[in-house]
Design a protein around this nucleic acid. Structure first.
Length: 308
DNA sequence: GACCAGGTGCCAG
DNA sequence: CTGGCACATGGT
């Protein structure tokens, strides 16, 4: 890494890495395409990344911090091998070579996934950027904004947050921000907890249920076994066993079926389904009912809307 | 317009 | 414990 005018930059060897697939897979939401790469930030550090083959050009960040954020230490070969016994998972894992589960900052990830219920990836992104734009700090010499600190969000009103397009999620985010700002809940305390205990702790926060808790555990706390059961994974797991169940039962089934890296494999399946590469048996929806709320509810697979 | 989106919280059987 | 609805917002 060289220093140009005090700005860190350099090139990193990155075998088994796909920057686009990783950033567009629905685990992080603030990175923006620019100059043939992506502009965004890691915590409060503004960063630009551009991949050329197995070379990653980076600017604004230390190579060690970047490698940790992008989880270059994860052994993807071992992870793929862990699901070789299950054909559909193995196929998804092969197709998603280079997709890594990142290590995101705790608060940023926690808060952002409170925004996710009943929202498409593009909308989560819009809400995340709106919060950053209005209440985040400008990162020196750039237009990039960091994710607002809990104290900042805690000082706002629910109406302020609704003005960012959060809808009913405003209440959960505000309540959670207040609990964190007051010290009643410490996101750092989860690091030392077993996964089940950490999940229980997360689920005490307003706006966080099992699915969101598992996303946070997987994307910020290195719990690669955590399986967030959303509509997609619910349908996928449902189709594997062709029998419907509750969200928690599907989650346990997924953990057992997908193994020690279930969260990773889940992400591969999710990405394949969302981009239209994993076709599930289309199912007829029950007649008459309008609202469908259970995570495993029947219905044809949603159209893939991935923009990249 | 109806339907759906990486669900959660709450209430009735 | 399980099933059923309301909850906001924006896109196809």
């Amino acid at each position: 890494m060289n220093a140009t005018k005090g700005i860190k930059q350099g090139v990193l060897q990155c075998p088994e890495f796909d920057l686009r697939m990783t950033f567009e897979s629905g685990q992080t939401f603030h990175w923006t395409e620019q100059d043939g790469g992506y502009t965004g930030c890691i915590g409060t550090t503004a960063v630009h990344l551009r991949q050329e083959g197995d070379r990653l050009h980076y600017r604004g960040v230390d190579a060690r911090v970047l490698s940790h954020y992008l989880a270059f230490d994860h052994d993807l070969e071992e992870i793929r091998a862990s699901c070789s016994a299950h054909p559909q998972s193995h196929e998804a894992a092969q197709a998603c070579r280079g997709l890594r589960i990142m290590r995101q900052p705790h608060w940023e990830c926690l808060a952002t996934f409170i925004l996710s219920p009943m929202k498409q990836v593009a909308h989560i992104r819009a809400m995340s950027l709106a919060l950053r734009s209005r209440y985040g700090k400008r990162l020196k010499g750039t237009p990039i904004r960091s994710f607002p600190e809990p104290q900042v969000l805690a000082s706002l009103t629910e109406e302020d947050l609704r003005a960012c397009g959060l809808g009913f999620r405003a209440k959960g985010l505000l309540g959670t921000a207040k609990l964190v700002a007051s010290g009643a809940f410490d996101p750092e305390s989860l690091v030392a907890m077993p996964t089940a205990e950490a999940r229980t702790a997360l689920c005490t926060l307003p706006g966080i249920g099992r699915k969101v808790a598992n996303c946070i555990l997987l994307f910020a706390y290195e719990r690669l076994e955590a399986v967030p059961v959303d509509v997609w994974i619910g349908r996928i797991l449902d189709s594997f066993r062709s029998r419907k169940t509750t969200q928690e039962k599907l989650e346990r089934y997924g953990e057992k079926l997908l193994g020690p890296y279930a969260g990773y494999i889940q992400q591969y399946l999710f990405h394949q389904a969302r981009t239209g590469r994993l076709i599930l048996p289309s199912q007829k929806k029950p007649t008459g009912r309008v609202a469908r709320k259970s995570p495993h509810s029947k219905g044809s697979l949603p159209r893939a809307t991935a923009s990249a």
